[in-house]
């Protein structure tokens, strides 16, 4: 089974490095980005399953980043990390396509639990896609050939 790959996006660099170290200790591979733009850049080149995204960031804020991620990489699961205890900002995020939300300050175990959940969801989705593709191949192998001829 594929190993979960996470990306942490927050403007607090110390938080990123410490959490990254912690996750590494727990055996998880995590990328970091200090801004929304950087996060999108990384997503272009690397395969990331779950993004932990801070809502409040200078420049491109969390919600805008979330929308952009969902537009360009719809399969990437996003968990919002909010300093506001208000449900409103969390609801905003969920409406825009976030999988879940976490409130600061959050423990690393809590973070991992939510991330694992999101990853599972992603896995299920990919499984379904695979199943569908398999069915398609079984139904008309010729189409596959045609697809191969005219990409």
């Amino acid at each position: 089974m594929e190993k979960m790959r996470m990306m942490l996006v927050d403007d607090e660099e110390r938080f990123l490095t410490t959490t990254q170290k912690l996750l590494a200790k727990k055996g998880y591979d995590a990328l970091t980005a200090t801004s929304g733009a950087q996060a999108l850049e990384i997503l272009e080149s690397k395969n990331v399953h779950v993004v932990i995204l801070d809502v409040k960031m200078p420049g491109m804020d969390g919600i805008a980043t979330l929308k952009e991620i969902k537009r360009r990489f719809p399969l990437v699961e996003v968990i919002m990390l909010t300093g506001h205890a208000t449900v409103e900002s969390a609801i905003d995020g969920l409406k825009s396509g976030a999988t879940d939300y976490l409130m600061k300050p959050t423990g690393v175990d809590e973070l991992l639990a939510k991330a694992a959940e999101a990853f599972e969801k992603r896995q299920r989705l990919e499984e379904k896609i695979r199943m569908a593709q398999t069915r398609k191949i079984m139904k008309s192998p010729r189409e596959i050939l045609r697809d191969a001829e005219n990409p």
Partner: peptide, 19 residues
């Protein structure tokens, strides 16, 4: 809200120290 950010870092640091 502003205090939550440093708290988050303290919490992470504390976890790291423990680990």
């Amino acid at each position: 809200h502003e205090i939550n950010n440093p708290l988050q870092i303290i919490k992470s640091e504390q976890s790291l120290i423990e680990v």
